[in-house]
């Protein structure tokens, strides 16, 4: 199990700060850079995200999620908030006309090692995506990773808006249940929902 840097930071251990920047900086940078058009904007967003990470360190609870997922959640919030502040709507820069939403076959690529570095919850999400129908998987990716609105996904895929919403709701709900039921350190999933409430902003 990886050292819990946020717990150390919350406990006053200053040596965890550079370690935290080193461990999660690339991830946060990639998530920000992928969604924001300008490099300057992404740099500002990364600084803002880290400030939020420092301030939220004491709200991290390993019974609720893995640290990396918690950090990725904060990064998502801040980047999407930033997009909304500026444009009023999420924008996407990653979608492409032909390959939009395509994901490589989960059983057929060599990125397993890299996935494992991203945590057990990411691995479970990957497995979960692999079990979905291609259409559901595509919709989930477009909604989450490409930050497309439901209407834009409907327009892109040709699916009715209701179907898009239902794919997203069902796909995320079943993943949520999978994550909630995973074996966890310490006092297991029983405290998950209660603790999750605490970490809600």
């Amino acid at each position: 199990m990886q050292d819990l840097l946020l717990t150390r930071i919350a406990g006053g251990d200053q040596s965890a700060v550079p370690e935290c920047i080193s461990r999660y900086g690339g991830l946060i940078w990639t998530l920000a850079r992928r969604r924001l058009n300008s490099r300057e904007d992404a740099e500002d967003a990364v600084q803002e995200i880290f400030i939020d990470v420092w301030r939220s360190a004491d709200r991290f609870d390993p019974r609720v999620s893995e640290e990396i997922t918690f950090v990725a959640m904060i990064a998502r919030r801040r980047v999407i908030d930033r997009l909304r502040r500026r444009t009023g709507l999420p924008e996407t820069t990653s979608i492409d006309a032909a390959g939009a939403g395509d994901l490589p076959d989960p059983a057929s690529d060599g990125s397993v090692g890299r996935r494992l570095e991203l945590g057990e919850e990411a691995r479970l999400a990957d497995e979960h995506l692999g079990q979905l129908k291609p259409e559901e998987r595509q919709v989930l990716r477009l909604a989450i990773y490409d930050s497309l609105s439901h209407a834009a996904i409907a327009a892109h895929t040709g699916l009715p808006l209701g179907t898009v919403k239902s794919h997203i709701r069902r796909g995320l709900d079943s993943l949520r249940r999978t994550l909630a039921g995973r074996p966890q350190d310490g006092d297991a999933a029983a405290g998950r929902s209660r603790a999750a409430e605490r970490s809600s902003r």
């Binding site: 918690f70 990411a122 999400a125 990773y145």
Partner: peptide
């Protein structure tokens, strides 16, 4: 949000 973040991480690795 945590579920969405886990999807984000999974797709990040694949894509």
């Amino acid at each position: 949000e945590l579920a969405a973040a886990a999807v984000d991480l999974a797709v990040l690795a694949r894509v």
